[in-house]
Amino acid sequence: MTGTPRIVVLAGGVGGSRFVLGVRGALRARGIHNTAAALTVVVNTGDDIWLSGVRLQPDVDSITYALAGVNDAERGWGRQGDTERVNHELQEWGAGWPWFTLGDLDLGTHLARTGWLREGLTPTDVLERMSHRWDLGARLLPMTDSEVDTVVVLDDGARLHFQEWWTRHRATLAPERFENPGIEAAAAAPGVAEAIAAADVVLLAPSNPVVSIGPILAVPGVREALRATRAPVVGVSPIIGGKVVRGMADVCLTAIGVETSATAVAGLYGARGNGGLLDAWLLAEEDEAVAHEVAGLGIRPLVRPLWMTDAARQTALGEAALAAAGV
């Protein structure tokens, strides 16, 4: 195609941030310097939480920091070179969670966000204001302006915030299901549906399909927008060789009765021709043998290298995803 493509990425978590970096890198490699005019990222806010009086948005911050080049790439979250003096002081007061670290620079972000929210700004407004600090090369939108934090319901009926289940217990407590209370009454954030409708390609990042992409798709109107868009919808498998790349997505998939495999996750999203979402699905080279299974679902399989271990591989995957859509 000619001109600047309009790309929408649905993303969350470390996999999402690396993939977004790759898409931006692919655009720059094509000579598109104003990537912010081309790239819109709809970010999961289902793992947001109030803690110690401030509003945390882990996926929003991970993607913002990654695009700004200030993220702690080794840990996968937080700011590079951050300190934890305030966090230690909070623990001395018995405030917050001793197993949930708030870096000092990171806490500055949370305090700024909370102040703006209390002044009446929406999460969309806040994210736009945050984006002015750095040249992110993308427009970031929260999935919704409503608070729809993720709750994990355990087999014994106990209910935990997702962050406690994920960070404190490392997903070792058996989940029965995941809920986002209030999401049925939520609406997509301003600009989300419009960006999807106007897109030349929509990409589903290789993020956790249950707790990162799942909440975005659960916002009323988002699935409908994806099914209605004339743009190809291309997903990237978060499963390589039958295993998760990072985190505990396998535990999440098992909880909802989905096998940890590239084929099963493609089936979870479904083929757009059969009422689902996907037109094409990028599989890892390690999963080439099951490409025919994906094709049998009515989804076009494309076997590509999926490991994002450095900037070059991230950019190569971003280019592969764009090429899969003919962009």
Score class of each variant (00 low, 15 high):
residue 287 D to W: 04
residue 284 A to P: 14
residue 116 W to T: 10
residue 138 A to W: 07
residue 92 E to I: 06
residue 113 R to G: 09
residue 132 H to V: 13
residue 34 N to Q: 15
residue 297 L to N: 02
residue 289 A to T: 04
residue 275 G to Q: 02
residue 11 A to I: 10
residue 221 G to M: 02
residue 180 N to E: 05
residue 255 A to H: 05
residue 149 D to R: 03
residue 85 R to G: 10
residue 181 P to G: 04
residue 250 D to I: 01
residue 89 E to C: 13
residue 73 A to K: 09
residue 44 N to E: 05
residue 198 A to L: 05
residue 68 A to E: 12
residue 211 V to R: 06
residue 179 E to N: 05
residue 202 V to Q: 10
residue 23 V to L: 06
residue 41 V to L: 06
residue 140 L to S: 08
residue 325 A to M: 01
residue 35 T to H: 08
residue 10 L to E: 01
residue 258 V to W: 09
residue 248 M to K: 11
residue 325 A to Y: 03
residue 61 D to Q: 05
residue 31 G to Q: 11
residue 77 W to R: 09
residue 182 G to F: 02
residue 210 V to Y: 10
residue 251 V to C: 10
residue 11 A to F: 07
residue 75 R to I: 13
residue 81 G to W: 13
residue 309 T to W: 09
residue 113 R to W: 07
residue 74 E to Q: 12
residue 203 L to K: 03
residue 29 A to D: 15
residue 101 T to V: 15
residue 115 G to A: 10
residue 79 R to F: 11
residue 111 L to Y: 09
residue 308 M to F: 03
residue 55 R to D: 02
residue 254 T to D: 15
residue 204 L to S: 00
residue 234 V to I: 13
residue 245 V to G: 03
residue 167 T to Y: 04
residue 101 T to C: 08
residue 128 E to F: 13
residue 319 E to H: 07
residue 161 H to R: 05
residue 118 R to W: 09
residue 65 Y to H: 12
residue 206 P to F: 01
residue 118 R to N: 14
residue 217 L to H: 04
residue 38 A to L: 00
residue 227 R to K: 14
residue 254 T to P: 01
residue 202 V to W: 07
residue 290 V to K: 08
residue 38 A to V: 02
residue 146 S to G: 12
residue 80 Q to H: 14
residue 154 L to E: 07
residue 247 G to D: 11
residue 187 A to W: 04
residue 5 P to E: 09
residue 55 R to M: 08
residue 248 M to W: 01
residue 85 R to A: 15
